[in-house]
Design a protein around this nucleic acid. Structure first.
Lengths: 262, 262
DNA sequence: CAGTGGTCTAGACCACTGC
DNA sequence: CAGTGGTCTAGACCACTGT
């Protein structure tokens, strides 16, 4: 056994001034990156590492925690620590809100997911009137109450995204936008039906570590950042007709954009 | 003193089944979010927290480490633990490679930074021929050697971005693209001069936690993810003429894109 | 120098998993 | 049940900062 571990991990360098827990983390990281520990494979247990390196358990735990915060491994209580697989990512193209896609009669998320062979679902739908935050109201250009549509998107029962859409009340009122099910084509189809022909969207992308509530809602593993998208929809009059505030599990997405060279 | 801490932090709930270190982290996080602890302010020392909560020092350290991995605080050896300021972010617009900007005679990074009132610089320039990775070669559509331009960008002496551009050798050879200083307008201006009129760029955006070398190169604080951008430039013939692989400190950037609705 | 955080030990008891 | 990781203690010594 001991020989096995030495082959995968190597031994400590007592002359190095690099902390022992970092050296152990380095060994494990290297083994993962070089493939000596493969995806979903269990790494040596804490007990094994303690014996192999001759250190205290807390030191081994510290090393493992470094890898966890790097998103490389996932600890499962009572089972072991496993190399995190790179989950299949969904590619979000920048034409995902183009009218030709909308005209298929499905909202963007559903249409895309089905095309990719996944089973999409939506839950936690809450629709209510809210007073917009400073940020939202400056984007919408109004401080009046707005309709807020909260929901969570799942792929094959894994939550991947939460979103809140804000729509000025004078636009939303009396339309299916106030209903949980907005009908074919989603809210963008309803906006166009009520005369707000969409012109373009502005999208801002940030990345950061999640807050605890986001970790919970998206069941995020330690070491997985979130994308924070804020998208504003403009109609052909130049009016902002919707702001969508989205938190996405960053290990589930690649965002793809086309930039003009002209 | 003890009264002060109680006002900022509150006390433990012994009936809760939430781990003590998590409760302490919750208290500190709440104090930061509610503003009882302001930006750059020092949080109570480990000693103070140990006395206030009546727990072991390792428990307090565990709590602080949670906040560190969330990017909320920054520990400075010998000084204390401080609430991380939200650094000023730079907004990257999706027209940043538009020709009208290029024609001002400056490369995109320099022009933008100066406009924002920052002092830009570039270092670690390495230019060499390389055999492209599988990924790069599939994007460029060639397995032949390419010219690789490695560099690091800094704003006011803070490193914010590393980038590697890959250009097919038949395009780069004999042009200023092979030189450290590519001249006015940067490599895109040189590409157009040599007949490769740019049509558009495809950009892929990922977010993840940094690898150790990236943490070093960008001097990243714990808990700060990176953006990983892969941008491909296409000329009007539809040929991929450059792939740029970029790692960015996510706390220094907001990416902004315009999406079509048509 | 006193005060801060960084590393490490050697235990203890608990909670979860799978046989 | 044995084996795994999760939490916590009560120390120790070290390295860095600022006065």
């Amino acid at each position: 056994m001991s020989a096995d571990l030495a082959a995968v991990l190597g031994t400590l360098d007592p002359t190095s001034d690099r902390a022992v827990f970092r050296q152990i983390a380095d060994h494990l990281r290297d083994a993962i990156e070089k493939g000596r520990l493969g995806e979903n494979e269990q790494i040596p247990s804490e007990t094994q590492l303690v014996e192999h390196y001759g250190v205290a358990r807390m030191t081994v735990r510290h090393a493992i925690q470094v890898l966890q915060s790097e998103g490389l491994v996932l600890a499962e209580h009572g089972r072991g620590v496993f190399v995190r697989p790179r989950p299949p990512v969904r590619r979000l193209a920048s034409d995902r809100f183009a009218r030709r896609n909308r005209e298929l009669g499905k909202a963007a998320f559903i249409a895309e997911a089905e095309q990719a062979g996944s089973a999409p679902s939506v839950d936690s739908i809450v629709i209510r009137e809210e007073r917009p935050s400073r940020d939202i109201s400056s984007r919408l250009g109004t401080t009046r109450k707005v309709l807020a549509r909260h929901r969570r998107y799942l792929l094959d029962d894994r939550p991947v995204e939460t979103a809140i859409s804000y729509i000025p009340l004078d636009i939303a009122r009396g339309t299916a936008i106030e209903q949980p099910n907005t009908g074919p084509g989603g809210i963008y189809a309803r906006l166009e039906e009520s005369g707000h022909i969409l012109d373009h969207f502005d999208e801002e992308v940030r990345a950061r570590m999640p807050m605890p509530d986001e970790t919970k809602a998206l069941r995020l593993a330690p070491g997985v950042p979130v994308f924070h998208l804020i998208r504003t929809a403009y109609d052909t009059q130049g009016r902002a007709v919707e702001v969508c505030d989205t938190i996405m599990a960053s290990d589930a997405y690649v965002l793809a954009y086309t930039l003009p060279a002209r």
